[in-house]
């Protein structure tokens, strides 16, 4: 297991959404992403627990890309990863934000 922590400075507004949202399932090649509101106004914290060691740089890249696409102020994102590809990670992150904002059906 590898435990990674990232923090993104996000000067945007805190999105108003649910208190929390969870998408995905922890299985081989898949992951779960949980989004929660926090009191951190101008930052987004991401914590990753992954079974695949040595991919910190790739996580950094995928999460930076994700942070640029969304307004993430005041969010805590927690990930349990069973070795998903960057494409699957991006997809789940987007789904989690949609679910958090109440946009998904």
């Amino acid at each position: 297991m590898e435990h990674l922590r990232f923090e993104f400075k996000t000067p945007g507004n805190r999105p108003s959404g649910r208190a929390s949202a969870l998408v995905g399932v922890v299985s081989s090649g898949n992951l779960e992403v949980m989004v929660e509101s926090t009191d951190l106004n101008e930052a987004c914290q991401v914590e990753v627990n992954t079974s695949a060691r040595g991919f910190a740089a790739i996580w950094q890249a995928v999460l930076t890309d994700f942070a640029e696409r969304h307004d993430l102020a005041g969010l805590r994102i927690s990930i349990n990863d069973g070795g998903a590809t960057p494409a699957v990670v991006s997809l789940r992150l987007d789904q989690a934000i949609e679910e958090f904002l109440g946009m998904s059906s």
Partner: peptide, 9 residues
């Protein structure tokens, strides 16, 4: 956790 396997929340 002890076994180094991913958990689910």
């Amino acid at each position: 956790e002890l076994l180094g396997l991913p958990c689910a929340f």
